[in-house]
Design a protein around this nucleic acid. Structure first.
Lengths: 227, 227
DNA sequence: TGTACATCAGTGAACGCGCGTTCACTGATGTAC
DNA sequence: TGTACATCAGTGAACGCGCGTTCACTGATGTAC
C-alpha cells in the first residue's frame, strides 16, 4: 500500500507548518524555533530535519504559504464580487477590503512578507511566483476595466526606464502606461495603509481605521480611473 | 569639578547607542545584544546596566534616535529648500527625497521604526513626540501652500469620525479637510514606496527606483493640490 | 505467499554556541565639614 | 587644606535559560524476488 507512509509524511509536513505559523503569530519570525515545534509534537528536535532540512527552509515555506493565502483571499473576493454582478471598480474595492481583512486576521503572516525582512535570510526564487498572485488580480482588474471603458490619463511623460518596466508588468494587456503607473500607486497605497495600521502608525491619528481605509481606496479608484 | 564623571557618562551612553546602531545595521533588532556591546567596549556585560537598565530601554533609545534623525533630515531638507528660494511644492518634493535618502542610508533604523514591530516590545510614550517630527513638516508645507494659494479639492464627503481626526491633526491650520485627507495619502504613499523599495518588493518590478520615486511624488504633489 | 533486503522515521546524545539579568564586591571619584 | 564619608563605575561569578545542527543508532514499514 504505497501512500501510507507518504500520507503520514504529508500530514506531519502540514502539522509542522501549522505549529510554525502559530509560533510566528505568538512571537514573530525571530522566535520561530525548531526545538519548540519538536516539543509540541512530542518528538526529539532532530526529527524535524526529516521534514524541513533547516530553519530557513521552514521560513521559506511560511513565506510561500502567506503569499498564497493572501493571493487566494484576493482571488476569492474578486470571484465572489463577479458572482454578485459587480463592476470592475466595485471588484477593486472588494479585493482591497479582502487584503486588509486577511492582514488583520493574520498580522504575523502579513508582517513576515511585508514587514522588515528577516535579517540574514534571503528568499529563494520559489517565493516569486506566489508573490505575484495578488498583484496579478489587480492588473487583471485594470485590464477588464480598460476593455469595458477605455481608460486614459493625461499624465506627465514617463521616463524610458520606467516605461520598460511597465511594459513588462502588463505586456499585452493594452492598458495605457499612465494607468499602469497609477495602478502601482494604488497597490502601494493599499499595502502602505495596511502596514501603517498594523504597525501602529495610525494609532492616535485615525480612530476608525476601517472607514479610513475604504475612503482612501475609493479615492484611489478615482485616481486610477475606474468608472 | 562637577561634570568629569558626568561627561564620561554621557560619552559612554552615546558610545553604547552607537554600537547598538551598528548591531542593528548588521543583523536587525533581534540581534541587538547587550553582551556583545559590552564585549566591544571591553567591559563586563553587567556594566551596561549602569547605562541602560534593560535591553528594551536601549531599544527605545534607538527608536527615538531614529525618529529624531529622520525628522531632522526632513527639517533640514525643507530649510535648505527655503534658502534656495523654493516654493512649497518643490519643498515637498525635497523633503520626500530626503526621507528616501535617509532611509537608504539607514535601512536598519528605518526598518526599526517602519517595519514590523519588535515582538514583545511595546513602545513607551517617549517615542510619540519624536515620531511626530516628520509629519509635522509635511503638515506645515500644506499650511504654507494654503496660505499662498488657497487649496481646495472637490472630494467625496468625509465621514464624521474621520473629520474629527483630521481636525486634531491640524486644528488651526485652516487647511481644508479634503486636502488634509489627501495629505495623509501622500505621506502613506511616500513611506509605502520607501518600504517597498527597501524590503525588496520592487525587485524585478522597477529598475530605476530613484526615478520611480520622484515620478510618484510629483504625482502625489498634483494629487494633494500643490501648484 | 514468504523471505531478504532496502528505505526511512524517529531516538538520544553531544557540540558549540548564544542570551538577559542579578548580586555582592572593590576601588576610584566626588562632596561636605 | 585635609579628612571622613557617600556615591557610583565597573568586576566576576552565577542563575537559568535558549538555540540549530550533526551523527551513529534502532526498529518499523515497504519492496523485490
Amino acid at each position: 500500500m504505497a501512500g501510507v507512509r507518504e500520507r503520514a509524511r504529508q500530514e506531519l509536513l502540514a502539522e509542522i507548518l501549522r505549529l510554525a505559523r502559530q509560533q510566528l503569530a505568538d512571537g514573530g519570525a525571530s522566535s520561530l524555533s525548531l526545538r519548540q515545534i519538536a516539543r509540541d509534537l512530542d518528538m526529539v528536535s532532530s526529527a524535524i530535519y526529516r521534514y524541513y532540512p533547516s530553519r530557513d527552509d521552514l521560513l521559506t515555506a511560511l513565506i510561500i504559504d502567506a503569499y498564497n493565502e493572501m493571493g487566494a483571499a484576493a482571488e476569492q473576493a474578486d470571484a465572489s464580487a463577479v458572482e454578485r454582478g459587480k463592476n470592475p471598480r466595485q471588484r477593486w474595492l472588494a479585493v482591497t477590503e479582502a487584503m486588509r481583512a486577511w492582514a488583520a486576521k493574520n498580522p504575523a503572516d502579513y508582517a513576515l512578507i511585508f514587514g522588515s525582512p528577516v535579517p540574514g535570510y534571503r528568499a529563494p526564487d520559489d517565493t516569486i511566483a506566489p508573490a505575484t498572485r495578488l498583484p496579478r488580480v489587480l492588473v487583471g482588474l485594470l485590464q477588464t476595466e480598460h476593455v469595458e471603458h477605455a481608460m486614459s490619463i493625461a499624465g506627465p511623460s514617463i521616463p524610458r526606464s520606467i516605461r520598460a518596466n511597465l511594459k513588462t508588468i502588463a505586456a499585452d494587456s493594452g492598458v495605457p502606461e499612465t494607468v499602469l503607473l497609477r495602478g502601482l500607486t494604488c497597490w502601494v497605497q493599499a499595502m502602505g495603509l495596511i502596514s501603517f495600521e498594523l504597525f501602529g502608525h495610525l494609532h492616535n491619528v485615525i480612530d476608525d481605521k476601517g472607514v479610513f481605509f475604504s475612503l482612501q481606496m475609493e479615492q484611489m479608484a478615482d485616481f486610477v480611473g475606474f468608472r
